[in-house]
Structure formats: structure tokens, C-alpha cells
Amino acid sequence: MSTNLIQLGDIRKVYTIGGVTIDALAGVSIGIDAQEFVAIMGPSGSGKSTLMHILGCLDSPTTGTYVLKGRDVSGLKSDELASIRNRDMGFVFQAYNLLAQMSALENVMLPLSYANRTVNVGKRRAQELLERVGLKDRMKNRPVELSGGEQQRVAIARSLMMDPSILLADEPTGNLNSIGARQILEILKELHGEGKTIIYVTHDESIGNQAERVIRLKDGLVDAAKDN
């Protein structure tokens, strides 16, 4: 177990809304190895987005331990978490989350702005990544000038900018038609083939079943019976 890339130990996340406490996660313990291709599934309200946010260091657990690459990150300060997100994580969101006033190329280069300046990657790499996702001719376009599938491919290029080991995708195909969804999934599989750890959230069985491993959540707990 100690060789796991990600090790969650009894993770709980409790929200208090209007005096009512809600256990979004009620004690989740899972391990994910390097280079795994994992889908997190479950009905809405099962806690899969919360789990994704905690895995991505976008949110901290109320209690429990999160060991990432052998380092306990559950109690880190916000700036340390920011640097983990920058170096080790790539994010792909359902709503693409590109910055509207920037071109595709500028969006892809954005993580570089927050990187340690010694990281010597640049415009060239951003161009290569956009070429790779088939957007060679759309680099100067702004998000509004791109289709949903194209925007999501820009977002994937952006998530790869800092060459992270983990790619986290929250309903990456949720806003796309079947052709767009298939393209995105193809890219994710390809990246998995190159050795990236891919974790994505979906409620769509046909999408989820394409992963090598499915983690099912129910009421904030891992539905062990269905963890295949």
C-alpha cells in the first residue's frame, strides 16, 4: 500500500448549511496506483465531486489523511496546495473553464504564469500540445469562437502544460455530444497509454465503463460491493 501514488485514509468532508450538517464524504479510504485509469461513479449527491476536489487539492478534508506521492498533504497551507495543483495535477472540467478574454494558446500557457520560473517550457510546448489535440489552426481563437469539443480539447492541452503525473477530469464529456465525447475519451486513453494517471468523474455508465477501474460512491461512502 505504501507504494500507492494516492492513498486516502478515512476521508470525511462535512458541510454545515443553515445549521444542518451534511456528510458529503463519510469516511472514504482508497488507494490509486500510478498509471491507473479510474472512473469515479455514483448518483448525484453521492460525493463524487467532493472526492474529486479533495483528490485535486482544490479542497481540504474535514478529517482523514491524504498521502500523495508519499507526502501527507491533508494539512498543507493554501500556497503549498497551489503549487501541488500547478506541478502535479492537470484539471479538465465539465464547463471547460477557459478564460474568455484569452486566445486558446494563451489559455494553454496560463499555468506557466504560476510556475516556478526555473521550469523552462514555453510557447513552443503550448503550440505542440494544441497541435496534438488537433487544434493547430485554432490557436489564436478565443473560446467563444470554438465548439464545445474544441474548448474541451484546449482545456486538456492546458492540463498537460506542466506535464503533471495526474489528470483529473470532472464530467469531462458532460456538455458534449457523442462525437465530441468520443474524441475526448480517445485523448484520455492515449494519455493513459503514455503513463499518466487518469481519474475522471462521470454519471454516464457507457463513459465510466471505459475505465480500467470504477470506484462507485453512495451516500459519501465507497460502495465496496461494486468496486471492480
Binding site: S78, A82, R85, F91, N97, L99, P111, Y114, R158
Partner: peptide, 16 residues
Amino acid sequence: TREIGIRKALGARERD
């Protein structure tokens, strides 16, 4: 707010 969230997800620190 959303732009700030995106920038933070990509690694922006408080001081950025």
C-alpha cells in the same frame, strides 16, 4: 470569481 477559481486551480497562489 470564476476566473479567480480557474487561476487558483491552475496553481495561482494568494499573492498572485
